[in-house]
Amino acid sequence: MTSSTPGFPLPGPPLPDPATGAPEVDPNAPERHGPLSFDGIRELDSNPPRIWTVIYITTFIACLWVLVAYPSIPFLSHGGDSSRVGLLGWSSRAALVADAGRAAAHEPSIQGRFERASYTEIEADPALRGYAVAAATSAFATHCAACHGREGRGNIGFPNLADRDWLWGGTPEAIEHSLQVGIRWPDHEPTRLSQMPAFGRMGMLQRPQILDMVQHVWSLSGMPHDAAAATRAAPVFAENCTSCHGERGEGNQELGAPNLTDQIWLYGNSQQAVFTSIHAARAGVMPVFGARLGTDAIRKLVVYVRSFGGGE
């Protein structure tokens, strides 16, 4: 029944309201007639509140302003430099550089002191040391904590940075160098490089010899061991292992050869773990951070790492 559909202005005289019999008129739209009520709900053809109309039109004007003021028309763009596209000359990259510049300007003068100070001076000065530790915390969390743990305590295969056992040296200079060039990082020329032979897999030692050698390695750090087996392995150790691990197994940081006389075991001290280390050899890898982080961040990380209490 089109003639009784509410809400549609229809030509012709007003229709009576079926409830009252009197013609119903919309005060906002006198040309509308017909029942304006249905099920007790009255529908009038009113304008929306003025404020909504104002907001609606203002939004359109703001959109047009953004369109011309900021780089939004790709046809005018030339590569990454979008500063010439908008009237304001704004570009996200320039804004980032400006933001970083403002942050650098707010950095306390301590940054200048930090850059000029040697590691000895930094570690002797609580203010400089605290500054470096605070500045390096998030870089450590992003780049180092995944392997070395949030508190630098390491994991199986990932060295503990909080102890005094250092594969490649724990002096500030040695740590900085390790961070700069990485350890066994593939296809990177100046990286720290050394490779223990896989004595078992390469057939240099037979299985019984390796089992004896496990006992000998245990004896070096005073662990309970089979003395006869350890003695049998001593000449083999002298022949194959001392060139890197030293005569008494004290290690060599020039070669990243671990100290075998301490009680610290990067890959565990079980027979299985030590056997695998001799049979297949281990070669831990650390990425190159020089180009990624820059010297300033690396120097702060060095101070941070040594703040765990390790170092030499």
Binding site: H143, A146, N155, F158, V285, M286, P287, V288
Partner: peptide, 20 residues
């Protein structure tokens, strides 16, 4: 890429909670 070692990626994918 290059932020962690290959071994870390493998161990992390095998069991993320072992390293993190």
């Amino acid at each position: 890429g290059g932020r962690y070692s290959d071994e870390w990626h493998v161990r992390h994918l095998m069991n993320p909670r072992e390293v993190v």
